[in-house]
Simulated assay, not measured.
Amino acid sequence: MVRIMEQHGLIVTLVPFAGAATPMVDAFSTSRLPRPVVVLTPDRAEDVNRHRFTAAHELGHLIMHPDTAPGDPQLEKEADQFAAEFLTPAETITPLLPNRLDLHLLDRLSKEWGVSIESLIYRCHELGTVSEAAYRRAFQRFNQLRKVGLFNHESVDGYAGEIPALLPKAFAVAESNGLTLTALAREISCKPARVRMLLGERNARPELRLV
């Protein structure tokens, strides 16, 4: 998902939000710069399917809501609908969805389509292949199985196409032409450590602890 966005000119980066916003904000996007920018968070990247859905959600905002303020519940719902349709188009996915919610079948579809089991359960309900009662029972059963260690999350680390690459490649080209990270940080009024984070470089410095 991230690589598709980058191939179409969007800038994507993985950067943690600061302070109280961290647990409440999945991502952020803006079209008010020379190129659209999507900021995803490393915490959400611990679940590749949630990360992928979040990226598609932000793409929906950029396409449908480029000049509106974030946080409107209706706009968030529309972005979710866009992400669901983008990742699991109704015309294609509906014939594959079960009439009875079999979690093992949904697990297989989850791996084939690159979306979470939760989103497939919701998609079954949204597209009318199961009843409201079956939908609620499936979520309850799924949460019970998740608590005992089944259906665990997978990190984006195993999915190269979900890790931003455009910014690091752009900097590598600039670096080969003489630009240094220190000079770039000075030019954009940012600390070098922050620039490294934006470029996706892991902090190799050891963490000091007071013993």
Results as ranks from 00 to 15, higher is better:
residue 129 T to S: 13
residue 133 A to Q: 15
residue 115 V to P: 09
residue 121 I to H: 05
residue 123 R to D: 06
residue 101 L to I: 15
residue 113 W to M: 10
residue 115 V to C: 08
residue 122 Y to W: 12
residue 114 G to W: 05
residue 111 K to L: 09
residue 108 R to D: 02
residue 131 S to K: 02
residue 128 G to D: 12
residue 124 C to S: 13
residue 122 Y to S: 14
residue 127 L to E: 07
residue 104 H to G: 07
residue 122 Y to K: 08
residue 107 D to M: 07
residue 116 S to P: 09
residue 119 S to N: 11
residue 118 E to M: 10
residue 125 H to G: 13
residue 106 L to S: 07
residue 129 T to V: 13
residue 132 E to Y: 14
residue 133 A to F: 08
residue 110 S to G: 06
residue 112 E to V: 12
residue 125 H to K: 12
residue 117 I to N: 03
residue 123 R to K: 11
residue 105 L to D: 05
residue 116 S to R: 03
residue 124 C to H: 02
residue 103 L to E: 05
residue 130 V to M: 07
residue 129 T to N: 00
residue 130 V to K: 01
residue 118 E to V: 08
residue 118 E to P: 00
residue 130 V to S: 10
residue 108 R to Q: 13
residue 131 S to H: 03
residue 101 L to N: 01
residue 106 L to W: 07
residue 107 D to L: 07
residue 103 L to S: 04
residue 127 L to P: 02
residue 122 Y to R: 12
residue 127 L to Y: 07
residue 130 V to R: 03
residue 132 E to P: 00
residue 106 L to C: 09
residue 123 R to I: 05
residue 105 L to K: 11
residue 106 L to T: 04
residue 108 R to S: 10
residue 121 I to E: 03
residue 122 Y to M: 09
residue 118 E to N: 11
residue 128 G to E: 13
residue 108 R to M: 06
residue 101 L to Y: 06
residue 120 L to R: 00
residue 108 R to H: 11
residue 119 S to K: 10
residue 112 E to Q: 15
residue 105 L to T: 11
residue 112 E to K: 13
residue 105 L to S: 09
residue 126 E to Q: 15
residue 124 C to P: 00
residue 124 C to F: 08
residue 101 L to A: 09
residue 104 H to I: 10
residue 125 H to I: 00
residue 133 A to K: 12
residue 128 G to N: 11
residue 116 S to F: 08
residue 120 L to E: 07
residue 132 E to W: 13
residue 130 V to C: 15
residue 103 L to F: 01
residue 109 L to T: 11
residue 118 E to C: 02
residue 119 S to R: 15
residue 120 L to W: 06
residue 106 L to N: 06
residue 124 C to M: 08
residue 122 Y to G: 05
residue 128 G to W: 00
residue 131 S to T: 15
residue 131 S to D: 13
residue 121 I to D: 01
residue 113 W to K: 14
residue 108 R to K: 13
residue 111 K to A: 12
residue 125 H to L: 07
residue 127 L to A: 02
residue 103 L to Q: 03
residue 123 R to E: 09
residue 116 S to G: 14
residue 111 K to S: 10
residue 107 D to A: 15
residue 111 K to F: 02
residue 115 V to S: 03
residue 129 T to E: 05
residue 126 E to A: 14
residue 129 T to I: 00
residue 120 L to C: 08
residue 131 S to G: 12
residue 112 E to A: 14
residue 129 T to A: 01
residue 113 W to A: 02
residue 104 H to F: 09
residue 130 V to D: 09
residue 113 W to L: 15
residue 120 L to D: 07
residue 130 V to E: 09
residue 130 V to W: 06
